[in-house]
């Protein structure tokens, strides 16, 4: 039984890793907190499920989902760069709009893919044992995504994208259209997120209108966990760390579920992880100040840090 849980954990970690890589592009490379993710993850699931239900080839359906996510990111990018809507709000607008769009695409709140052809059954037909099919897809997709992203981030455009997130004024003065870069980054990110959603829907054999809720927080938690544990020295290292972060996140979740945490409390738990991670620099400084004050000053000073 433990093996099944372990395998399932790895599969989920890998399939969701594509989404995490997408969040990494916006959150870390572009320095943009993009909430479109919640909508585009479900969009990927909805598009793939609807097309598969319509007897479209699952690989083609997955590809269409990927591009649909790209368009969602493009729209967020246009809202932000052309209409000057704040990053957070641009993402929220897309996310909310996508809720309706996803319902339209699916025609109902959920679609079951049981006994239908998916990319996972597709792999078994290539000779992979059924037990390993999802893992093979997950590893293949994550490794491919990491390599392609690494290559891309080392191209001229990749450099320009990274510089846009780092210092927009500087890179504009070196001739880069930062609006175009933001749109490109948001599209790439949401395309990956939707791809992840498409694969997850096929993995769990259903797409659901609520499947995207909280995706951004899972993405952030995985990115932060990965960077903290595995380091962020070089691009390759960070990309690998982010994928591993997704795996560690799933392991942690599996662990707390085993300990008896209610599945419905998972999002609260994830939000707590992210809060602690984001607050840690502030907390660390506070702790250090108390520590130093405690040593160098009188006891009265200590009360200040409470």
């Amino acid at each position: 039984m433990y093996f099944t849980i372990f395998l399932g954990t790895m599969e989920q970690g890998l399939l969701w890793a594509l989404m995490v890589l997408g969040v990494y592009i916006t959150f870390r490379v572009l320095n943009y907190a993009d909430l479109t993710v919640d909508g585009s993850f479900a969009l990927g699931g909805a598009v793939a499920a609807r097309l598969i239900l319509g007897e479209i080839d699952p690989w083609a359906a997955t590809l269409v989902a990927f591009f649909a996510g790209g368009i969602a990111g493009l729209i967020t990018g246009i809202l932000h760069t052309q209409f000057k809507i704040a990053p957070l709000l641009s993402g929220i607008l897309s996310m909310i709009a996508l809720y309706s769009v996803n319902l339209r695409i699916m025609g109902k709140a959920n679609i079951s893919l049981l006994r239908l052809d998916t990319v996972i059954t597709g792999v078994t037909r290539l000779g992979v044992e059924e037990k390993w099919a999802a893992l093979v897809i997950g590893i293949g997709a994550a490794v491919l995504a990491v390599i392609l992203l690494w290559l891309f981030l080392n191209t001229e455009i990749g450099f320009a994208l990274r510089a846009t997130g780092d210092n927009g004024q500087m890179i504009r003065s070196l001739g880069v259209n930062t609006n175009a870069m933001k749109i490109l980054g948001l599209s790439m990110s949401n395309a990956l997120v939707a791809l992840s959603g498409a694969l997850v829907a096929q993995y769990q054999s259903f797409a659901d209108i609520g499947m995207g809720i909280g995706t951004i927080v899972i993405g952030l938690a995985s990115v932060i966990i990965g960077e903290v544990i595995f380091g962020a020295n070089s691009i390759m290292r960070t990309l690998a760390a982010v994928v591993l972060g997704s795996l560690v996140y799933r392991i942690v979740i599996a662990f707390v579920l085993q300990l008896g945490l209610e599945p419905t409390d998972l999002r609260l738990f994830t939000a707590l992880i992210v809060t602690v991670a984001l607050a840690s620099p502030v907390l660390k400084a506070k702790v250090q100040r108390c520590f130093f004050l405690g040593r160098s000053e009188t006891g009265a000073e200590n009360e200040k840090c409470a």
């Binding site: 191209t155 001229e156 455009i157 450099f159 320009a160 890179i171 070196l174």
Partner: peptide, 17 residues
Amino acid sequence: LALALRRGRRRGLRWGV
């Protein structure tokens, strides 16, 4: 420096440096 060397040039999918 590689970013600066490409000022005024089209950036593509060639190596960044």
